[in-house]
Nucleic acid binder design. Structure first.
Length: 144
DNA sequence: TAGGCCATCTGGTCCT
DNA sequence: AGGACCAGATGGCCTA
């Protein structure tokens, strides 16, 4: 848990909602607000857990730093599209030999980004996928 | 020090 | 009525 903003309802409040006439009413409002805050914290923690799980299954080539939430979503989107493309292409070229299929995949390669693939010296599955997968970390854009 | 990212609070809206 | 979800505001931490 990171830093917490000084809380209105955890201590005292300037919220208009708290202009309650009786002390009992005030107490009820404060209790409700605190419960709502706790629920919201829990909800956001659930969301963050989901992001962490997504980060684990999404590739992070060359990124030693943890992906931001935005980057994680962009990467996931790009990853799904790339997988889908590979699946579609492999079905379409069912009759071709593995070598021919590989060559077809390499047609999609962005040669500027992954020059190692040019010489066919590292056509592993992951690199093949990477080649048709071009989420730009710095540009925050998907190019598939 | 500015900017990015994040956690938290809060009030509004919708749903049960 | 109360919970879930959302978006805006705010302030802390970190890095270039």
């Amino acid at each position: 848990m990171k830093s917490r903003r000084p809380s209105c309802t955890d201590s005292g409040s300037e919220s208009s909602e708290l202009d309650s006439s009786s002390p009992q009413k005030f107490e009820t409002v404060v209790r409700r607000r605190m419960a709502a805050n706790a629920r919201e914290r829990k909800r956001m923690q659930g969301l963050n857990t989901a992001f962490d799980r997504l980060r684990k299954v999404v590739p992070q080539w060359g990124q030693d730093k943890k992906l931001s939430k935005y980057e994680t979503l962009q990467m996931a989107l790009s990853y799904i599209v790339a997988l889908n493309r590979i699946l579609t292409d492999s079905r379409r070229n069912n009759s071709t030999s593995p070598r021919q299929w590989l060559e077809l995949q390499l047609d999609c390669v962005q040669h500027d980004n992954y020059p190692c693939l040019l010489g066919y010296d590292c056509p592993s599955g992951e690199e093949l996928l990477q080649s048709s997968f071009s989420y730009q970390f710095d540009a925050h854009q998907v190019h598939v």
